[in-house]
């Protein structure tokens, strides 16, 4: 029972990181229709920036915040420089484009930081004992960061004019233009949001997963599976999908074989693609577009 609880807590925390990355996929896809293959790299870059700033003597909190801001700006610039000029292209063009961005970010990280993994230290050292369940404090940090990011995103999307405009653009792009919402501004905003959530995931999970030039592939894939559970269309579903994936992975590793842990994501992805392309938690029936 204790074992089970321990696995579930650890799974929820890695799952929360997957979910945050997944939210990035949803943000960009719901507004632009693009699947951003560089989503995982936002986490990777943020991890490295935070590690570098910490190494330069900044306090951990400042390094973490600065890393998130840096990646948010970077994501916005990428959208303006690399994505916006290709407006109206086919899906294949965007796949090549974001793959190119991903490769560029990875190669740059490899050149600058080298091939060896690094990591931020755990935000709080030691191990917590919650009634016999051993919990790494970092797992709680990941969960807390996810809750804060999700709540902030909720308030932004539900309570602010810009947030409503963002949702309008995702729900009904033609009508959004007709009330004066600029699709290109919302596209930039979607990349900035994706940068923020990806960066938060990259920073808080660095003590657990470590940060290396290739970690974006791992996080991006898991995040994509999480987002797919809501058909790439729902933010709550992406977070739930991430949590589910994280927990199932840990249970498979704990009770069956740790070698199978990473196969879980692929297995879920295949089931999803075959059985429910609109996602497990997704709505069936697409919104009509004109």
């Amino acid at each position: 029972m204790i074992d089970l609880l321990q696995l579930v807590v650890a799974g929820l925390s890695t799952g929360a990181a997957y979910g945050l990355v997944g939210v990035g996929f949803v943000a960009i896809h719901s507004v632009t229709g693009i699947i951003n293959l560089a989503q995982g790299e936002f986490a990777m870059v943020a991890g490295f920036v935070a590690i570098a700033l910490l190494g330069a003597g900044f306090p951990l909190a400042a390094a973490a915040v600065a890393a998130v801001v840096t990646v948010a700006v970077l994501a916005g610039v990428i959208e303006r420089v690399a994505v916006a000029p290709a407006a109206g292209s086919s899906a294949v063009v965007y796949i090549m484009l974001t793959l190119g961005v991903s490769t560029t970010l990875k190669a740059t990280a490899l050149l600058v930081a080298g091939p060896q993994p690094r990591a931020l230290p755990a935000f709080t050292p030691g191990v917590l004992d919650l009634g016999g369940v051993q919990v790494r404090p970092q797992d709680l940090w990941i969960l807390v960061a996810t809750v804060i990011a999700a709540a902030a995103l909720y308030v932004f999307l539900e309570r602010t004019t810009t947030g409503r405009a963002f949702r309008a653009c995702a729900e009904q792009p033609v009508a959004a233009r007709l009330v004066g919402i600029s699709p290109s501004r919302m596209s930039t905003l979607s990349w900035v949001l994706a940068g923020i959530v990806g960066a938060v995931a990259g920073v808080v999970s660095s003590p657990v997963f470590q940060t290396d030039w290739n970690i974006g592939l791992f996080l991006g894939l898991k995040g994509f599976v999480a987002a797919s559970m809501g058909g790439l269309a729902s933010i709550p579903a992406a977070i739930l999908g991430g949590l589910l994936l994280g927990v199932v992975e840990r249970l498979v590793a704990g009770y069956i074989s740790s070698g199978l842990q990473d196969a879980v994501a692929f297995f879920l992805l295949i089931i999803l693609l075959v059985a429910r392309p609109s996602g497990v938690f997704g709505r069936t029936g697409a919104v009509a577009r004109v």
Partner: peptide, 11 residues
């Protein structure tokens, strides 16, 4: 006011 109304359905 476009053809088929195009209200924002989720709002």
């Amino acid at each position: 006011v476009p053809e088929n109304r195009l209200v924002f359905p989720g709002m």
